[in-house]
Every structure is written in structure tokens, then in C-alpha cells.
Amino acid sequence: MPRKTRTTLFIILAFLFLGLTGCQGATEVHEEATAEPAEEVAPAPKDASVMSEETVEENYCLDCHGDKDRLIDTAKPFVEVVSENEGAG
């Protein structure tokens, strides 16, 4: 095989090799990206200014106001106010 032909063939093979390995790398990166979508779609961190204290501390408000039995136990005695209105309002 003439030297010029060998050189040309070498250059073609080299480009082919580089091209294939380059594509392979890109595919792997793409697969990695789609394999872990959770990172891409995970909710953004909440704004600190509106972040609930309850997420980091005990929420005594909700503990009580979300518990029917506790509310019944702690409710002030019901005082019935008899309306003195007469007739349609």
C-alpha cells in the first residue's frame, strides 16, 4: 500500500474513532441526565421569608387546632346568647 494511501486511511480511521467515542460520551451524558430526572424536576427550595416555622419546629397551634378532642376539652364553656332581635333582619 502506498505511503500516501496509508496516511489517508490512518487519518480517516482516527477521525472515525474520535467521532464514535465522542458520540458515545454524549450518549452517556444524556442517559445519565434522563436516568436521574428527580434532580431536574425537584421543587425549588421554598422562599425563606414564607417558609413555615412548622417545618423546623413544633407547631403547637396545629397540634391543638387540628385535634378535635383537644379542642373539645379546652373550649370555653358555651354561653348561649339569646338574640333579642325581633322580626326579619
Binding site: K46, V50, S52, E53, E54, N59, L62, H65, G66, K68
Partner: peptide, 18 residues
């Protein structure tokens, strides 16, 4: 005064401190 402890905390207003 009974708060829906399951649903309210998941709403937009439930993200705000009482």
C-alpha cells in the same frame, strides 16, 4: 376553630407560619 390538619398545611396559605 378545627383546622384540617391534613389538607391545610399542603395549601399555599398553609406554608405561612400561623
Amino acid at each position: 376553630v378545627l383546622v384540617d390538619a391534613e389538607i391545610f398545611p399542603t395549601t399555599a396559605h398553609g406554608q405561612i407560619s400561623c
